[in-house]
């Protein structure tokens, strides 16, 4: 009698209906978490800021020559030059904040893509193939895990030179090992599950098993791990910039902080120069951490009680 809509779709395309239900369930679980909600809203604010940069602040505010021609003073306080004053080169601090959000978010996301791609590849290969491949890969992972991350990044960045792509590469190359370990452990447990044996006994190839059975089952964990890798990437970019290894042509938040510090903003009491960028970093890092922890808890319910 009651053949409802879901039942019909289920019979027509069970896989898609299951995926949609899973997604719906996932979204509900996510929204039920208060930290998750706060993180998501914070992130949306900053993504909107980065996307709407041309509407919010004129890029010419970053140009010393234009500012000089317009008679903008140096070190103008927020009341003299709203909303956030100017720096030692007469540049608009609000414009630096708005345009800097693009660079910081971009570096954070791009470096995470490199980290996750490297880490997942090593983790899946190592866990799935096993044997001496596993031993060798895990030995290398162990090496990279123990070597202090920031000094290695500094050394790599010094040798490669100052560019945004080098920074992305350096962060990716230095932070993949923890992802690799996590993914490997998960692959090892998934590999033992019955459906993998079943697929193999039906004649599925290795590639098929990895793509259709292993990967979907570790993807939740990879996503959570990726979200938690973004804040680390953003903080690393900031620190490398502060140490003088940032891209000199890109107005990132880290670059604003190092310029403020080196040109004496602290002793000149120009708080408007170094406070906004720091708050931007803090909030974006917080947003990704909150989202990542929520995703991690959904992907691995055993963590539920701990956070």
């Amino acid at each position: 009698m009651s053949v409802d809509a879901t039942a019909v779709t289920t019979s027509r395309n069970p896989a898609w209906a299951r995926r949609r239900r899973a997604l719906h369930h996932f979204a509900r679980q996510f929204w039920a978490s208060r930290p998750g909600r706060i993180g998501l809203l914070l992130l949306l604010v900053f993504v909107a800021l980065a996307l709407a940069a041309p509407l919010l602040a004129d890029r010419s505010g970053l140009d010393t020559a234009v500012a000089r021609a317009d008679g903008v003073p140096q070190w103008a306080s927020p009341s003299e030059h709203p909303p956030l004053g100017t720096d030692y080169l007469r540049r608009d601090v609000w414009a630096q904040f708005v345009w800097g959000s693009r660079i910081s978010l971009f570096v954070g996301l791009a470096a995470t893509v490199v980290t996750i791609a490297l880490g997942s590849a090593v983790g899946i290969v190592s866990g799935f193939i096993g044997g001496w491949t596993d031993s060798v890969l895990m030995r290398v992972t162990e090496w990279f895990l123990v070597i202090p991350f920031l000094p290695l990044a500094i050394v790599l960045a010094s040798v490669l030179g100052r560019s945004i792509w080098n920074i992305i590469f350096v962060i990716g190359v230095t932070s993949w090992p923890s992802t690799a370990r996590l993914v490997r452990a998960q692959v090892l447990t998934v590999k033992q599950r019955l459906f993998v044996d079943r697929a193999r006994s039906l004649g599925a190839s290795r590639t098929h098993v990895v793509l259709k059975h292993i990967l979907p089952n570790v993807s939740g964990l990879i996503l959570a791990n990726a979200t938690l890798a973004v804040p680390i990437s953003i903080l690393t970019e900031t620190t490398l910039s502060f140490l003088g290894l940032g891209d000199p042509r890109k107005p990132s938040w880290g670059k604003t902080l190092v310029e403020a510090f080196e040109n004496g903003a602290i002793t000149l009491r120009a708080w408007w120069y170094f406070v906004p960028s720091g708050i931007g970093i803090l909030l974006v890092v917080l947003a990704f951490t909150l989202i990542g922890q929520t995703l991690e808890r959904i992907a691995d319910p055993r963590l539920g009680g701990r956070r």
């Binding site: 804040p231 903080l235 900031t238 620190t239 502060f242 880290g254 902080l257 403020a260 510090f261 602290i266 170094f274 720091g278 970093i281 803090l282 890092v285 917080l286 951490t289």
Partner: peptide, 12 residues
Amino acid sequence: VFYSMPDFWLGM
């Protein structure tokens, strides 16, 4: 919050 800020910025 302390965990999320760059340490050198906290120093500044």
